[in-house]
Each structure stands twice: as structure tokens, then as C-alpha cells.
Amino acid sequence: MSAEWDWTAETEIPSKLGAHLPFLEEVLSRMESLGWGGRDLFGVQMTLEETLTNAIRHGNHSDASKLVRAACKVNGERFWLSVEDEGEGFCRDDVADCTADENVGAFGGRGMALIDAYMADVSFNDRGNRITVTTHRGYRPPVDDAD
């Protein structure tokens, strides 16, 4: 199924902390102009922040000579994002589930948990160095806040 996108962008970001912010701000600004806001836009902001900083920090180890390649497509209802780094790849099974009781106070894993929660679909390429996410307005994660 193809989607009619109102705005698309591709960019290359040097792997310096903070270098992703102009792209992040541009995507949010475009989406706001397309009617996104509130909780929906918050989830997109979180996803942009976590995917891009993961690629910079963990994928490319903050090596400014390495690039993060990001592509984004948006319309009034849907958001699509792909973020690729030059790292050796990421294996989801190697990251502790921060939501498991024994890991609640542990460091790491929360960025991925947030991406999973805010996006309707999350996938990786075989190498594990490219994440692709999609969501739509009104999507709500199944939050289990039980004690």
C-alpha cells in the first residue's frame, strides 16, 4: 500500500552529539504545520531523539567522521522514519528489557522501550544498523502500569 506523503526529507548527520537537533526540529515543525500536536507529536519527538542519538552514540560511537543517514516521510496522518549508522549492527536480544522487574533500575534499554511504545511498527535490517519506524496519529501503546 502506498501513501501520499506531504513532506519527505533525507539527510546525513555527522556523529557529534547534538548534531541531530536541526533535523529533529525541522521534522517536528513540518509535522506541526500538518496538524500534528500534543501526545502524538511528543511520541514522534521521543522517537527522533532516541533513534538519532542511538545511531550517533552507540552505532557510530560519536565518531564525527562517520555519518548517520536519516530519511523521513510525513503527512497529516502518518509518520515514517529510517535511521542508518555505520556501526557493526545492533541485536535487540543483546539489550536488557528495562521494563522487566529485575531491570527497572538498570542503566540502558529505555530508549528502545520508548521507541517500541510510541511507534506502531519498528523493524531493523538484517545487519542491525538501520531502524525503520512508522506510526499514525492517535496510535496509543498498550501501557502496562500495573504494580
Binding site: R39, R110, D147
Partner: peptide, 16 residues
Amino acid sequence: RPEIYEVFAITKLTKL
């Protein structure tokens, strides 16, 4: 605020 509380809830930091 609710959006930030949801971040705590998703990551189970509401338990910590």
C-alpha cells in the same frame, strides 16, 4: 505532566 508520566510508565520507572 501526563506526557512525561507516560515516559516513566513505559520504562517502568513508576516502580522505582
